[in-house]
């Protein structure tokens, strides 16, 4: 059993916050899909919204994890931006 904890740096703007200087609303900008693969196979998919806190923290529990397993996390946001990170179980 492995506990997978991640913190993704992202503003997760709700679209309801005002810019401190211009007083204009900051547009919605949030991660909408995040996927996790273990050795190339899907183990989790998260559909998120603007109601998830800034710099999303996510914690999952995955059985059958062994040394050398490769985990890959991909995220995508409503602006079409995306990112990926890979790590190997030490």
């Amino acid at each position: 059993m492995a506990e997978l904890k991640m913190l993704v740096f992202h503003p997760m703007e709700s679209g309801l916050r005002k810019d401190a200087v211009t007083k204009e609303l900051i547009p919605r900008h949030f991660i909408d899909i995040l996927t996790i693969e273990q050795n190339g196979l899907p183990v989790l998919e998260a559909h998120l919204s603007r109601s998830v806190s800034r710099n999303p923290f996510l914690h999952f529990k995955i059985p059958n994890v062994k040394k050398g397993d490769k985990f890959k996390i991909d995220w995508h946001d409503n602006f079409g931006e995306n990112g990926t990170i890979e790590t190997e179980v030490p």
Binding site: Q38, L41, P42, V43, L44, E45, A46, H47, L48, S49, S51, V52, S53, P56, F57, L58, H59, F60, K61, I62, P63, N64
Partner: peptide, 15 residues
């Protein structure tokens, strides 16, 4: 949010 548990991932989430 909606979380899909694939493979043998435990139906657990913390956020």
């Amino acid at each position: 949010a909606q979380f899909f548990f694939k493979s043998k991932t435990l139906p657990f989430v913390s956020s």
